[in-house]
Amino acid sequence: MPTESQSIFASLTPNDWGIIFTMLGVAFAAVLAGIGSAIGVGKAGQAAAGVVAEQPDRFGNCMVLQLLPGSQGIYGFAVAILILIFSGVLGGDTSALTLEKGLSYFAASLPIAFGGLLSALHQAKVAVSGIHMLAKRPDGFGNAMMFTLMVETYALLSLIISVFLVLFA
């Protein structure tokens, strides 16, 4: 019965739609960036465990490299929280959330969601290579960290645009 579902959507006010899209934005920012970081940190962690198995004293350096792809998840989380606060969802007052506002918040989540997801995945590849490099060249930590951080720049740029969009939505 399509009419029934149609009627459900028809009964939603623009305010409801605004809330829905805001929530979607929160979810997108947190989930996609989080997935990227989870996969990234996971892969780097596997590589790190392999190196530490042979050379236990590399633990500290390996762990720092492992953590670098983890920041995207935190950026996504920060954007999600910012959307929650600025949209009023966290304060409980969502009456001002028009459809337009909700869509704006949704759009605001996209840069960090996708920028975070993909940059974390690619940063993880660099981190894994860096960890392998560390196994062969113990003094290569600084270089490995720099290579990995180069990717991070684009996650940060995504974060900044997301924050802008939240603040000016």
Partner: peptide, 22 residues
Amino acid sequence: LSYVRIFALGLVSGAMGMVFNL
């Protein structure tokens, strides 16, 4: 433009602290 990261990281640490307090 790369120095914008100073602002971004400051923002993240502030936001994280705030959320954790919440």
